[in-house]
Computed example of a mutant assay.
Amino acid sequence: MRPPKPRISRPRLNWRWVRGKWEPYHRVTWSEGGKQRCREIKLDWRGDAQELDRLYWLAQAGQHQAQARPSRYTWRECIEAWRRDKVRGAGKVKATTRASYQRPMDAIMEKNGAKDMRKTTRQAVRGAVGKLSDTPRKASRYAQTVSLLWTYARRELDWPLGENPASGLAYYKPARAFEPWPEWMVEKLEEAPASVRIAAQLILGTGQRPSAAITMRRDQFSGEWMSVHDEKGDQWLEVYCPPRLRAFIQDQPVRGSHMLAKNLTEPLGYHAIEKAFRSWRSTLGERAAPYSLHGLRKLAIVELAEAGASDAEIQAVTGQSAEMVAYYRSRASRRRLSKAAQERRK
């Protein structure tokens, strides 16, 4: 037998017997196209008369959360549209570039997904970028992502957006050219964690970008040759594998299809290796602070130049531009000339 209905009566308040208990509903009626329509909102009062009173008056004023209209022009809507778009959105960029946008887009979705893009201010974007100032690359990528989405929403979705609030905020540039590692730091790799040691040898031995070297598969090495991916040119190249790198690879235990294996089929990510590298570098003191993983690629140029390789030969290995090769060749020339000069003093 049902218990008696609560003795709370107000205009537009209806009581319904739902799943063994009385539940209050706020009812609104209106005319549309000559027909009468209605809508009911359940008031989750939880048996508390005061809470029912609060929810009732919110509904009367049209301010109950169930009465809120779904926001348009939201960051979530824009990101989902960009990801679905195979022509002018995600499908327009390379897989590696698309992957680099994944993390900042997820962060935007989590914190601002339901927010109206039109209300985004330059001050807010600057503040978000500023919080990432300790990691300039992440800060730059975040600003680039905001700018990308804003431009996409204006041009492809025809959204009524104003000036791009992220314009000019993706300011990251290396403060100076990447420094080639000194000999003492290369020697210290013997004491580094395995992931850092393997990544360093791959970057130095292949001369490739850290992101490409870190994700190399074991089947990219075959005898005297290795298959490397030129990310900038988006092409695969056959390059001679130096004996030192061949010997190093043969000594590494097989833990998956990749040299730096996360599991049997996936590689460790660049960010995981970078984090491990920074942690190891901090143990070496202040003199190690100027050097990054990219510095190993530059060291590869210097070593090749000191060994007498031509600019074209260095480019064939590292894929670096002629200007970059010329810059680091000058570094190698100074080292070689200074050694020759100092040895004459003997």
Score class of each variant (00 low, 15 high):
residue 7 R to H: 12
residue 8 I to F: 08
residue 27 R to Q: 13
residue 37 R to Q: 13
residue 38 C to D: 10
residue 41 I to Q: 03
residue 48 D to W: 09
residue 51 E to Y: 03
residue 51 E to T: 11
residue 68 A to Y: 05
residue 71 S to N: 10
residue 72 R to S: 14
residue 74 T to M: 07
residue 76 R to W: 02
residue 88 R to F: 14
residue 89 G to L: 03
residue 100 S to W: 04
residue 102 Q to H: 10
residue 105 M to W: 05
residue 109 M to E: 14
residue 111 K to D: 14
residue 124 A to I: 07
residue 125 V to A: 04
residue 126 R to K: 12
residue 134 D to T: 09
residue 137 R to S: 13
residue 137 R to C: 10
residue 142 Y to Q: 04
residue 146 V to T: 01
residue 147 S to I: 03
residue 151 T to W: 01
residue 151 T to N: 10
residue 153 A to S: 15
residue 166 A to C: 02
residue 167 S to P: 00
residue 170 A to Q: 01
residue 175 A to M: 03
residue 175 A to Y: 02
residue 176 R to T: 11
residue 184 W to M: 03
residue 192 A to H: 04
residue 195 S to W: 00
residue 199 A to V: 07
residue 201 Q to N: 13
residue 203 I to K: 01
residue 211 S to A: 14
residue 212 A to R: 02
residue 214 I to A: 01
residue 215 T to Q: 12
residue 218 R to L: 08
residue 221 F to L: 06
residue 234 D to I: 06
residue 268 L to E: 10
residue 270 Y to Q: 04
residue 270 Y to S: 02
residue 271 H to V: 06
residue 280 W to T: 04
residue 286 E to R: 12
residue 287 R to F: 07
residue 291 Y to R: 02
residue 295 G to R: 02
residue 298 K to R: 15
residue 302 V to D: 00
residue 303 E to G: 08
residue 310 S to A: 08
residue 313 E to G: 12
residue 315 Q to G: 15
residue 316 A to R: 10
residue 318 T to F: 03
residue 327 Y to E: 06
residue 346 K to E: 06
